Computed example of a mutant assay.
Amino acid sequence: MDKSLLRQQVLESLAQDLLQTEQAALAAHETATHEENIAENKYDTLGLEAAYLATGQARRVTAIRQAITHWRQFHPRPYDARQGIQLGALVCLADADGALQHVFLGPAGGSMKLLCGGQPVQVISSEAPLGRALLGKCEGDEVLVQVGSGQMGYEVVGVA
């Protein structure tokens, strides 16, 4: 799997999310400011609700733009076994049943699932519980992640 290709797919997905979120923010803003939505009494809250929605969408637009900036500046480096898993690592994990999962550790804001070479790849940040648990690990190491009241265990099968 090509990490540069994965990075490009993340950027394309974020660009799509940005476009959709900007359109949603604009629609919510137009609804909030439309003259027909001026409150006529204290129970008429459509304009107020649309204003809250527009504010939330605007914050989401800002977050996606920041994520795009982080991902544009991010250039994954080759895996260095002396340092263990670091940001930019493409990791293959096996769970207790032997099922394989591919994880790409990237900067914040890119949490998503992608397909690369026909294989599903989960993109996570080092802020995610699994991302934090992977940092510094090497092939053959076991990784434990708290999930609710239990723990999930994985073995690091491969790192690129």
Rank of each mutant, 00 (worst) to 15 (best):
V159F: 00
Q122R: 12
A128Y: 10
M152H: 08
R59A: 13
Q23Y: 02
G47T: 02
E142N: 10
E127V: 07
S149P: 01
G56W: 00
V143Q: 03
K3L: 00
Y43I: 09
L19W: 06
A99H: 14
G56D: 00
V10G: 05
A81G: 08
L19Y: 07
A108C: 10
H29P: 00
I85Y: 02
G98S: 09
A94S: 13
I68P: 03
A128F: 07
F104E: 03
I85V: 15
D2H: 07
G136A: 10
T69F: 12
G84E: 11
D44R: 01
A108P: 03
L6Q: 00
Q20F: 11
E155G: 08
N41M: 07
Q8G: 09
Q151P: 01
R72S: 14
S111P: 02
P76R: 04
N41I: 06
V123A: 06
I38N: 15
Q16D: 14
Q119S: 10
N37P: 07
P107G: 09
A128T: 15
A96R: 15
Q73S: 14
A63I: 00
L26W: 05
G110R: 02
L6G: 01
L115P: 02
I68T: 05
K3C: 01
R7S: 04
Q101M: 14
Q86E: 15
Y79V: 08
T45Y: 08
Q8I: 12
E49P: 01
E36I: 12
V91G: 02
Q122M: 08
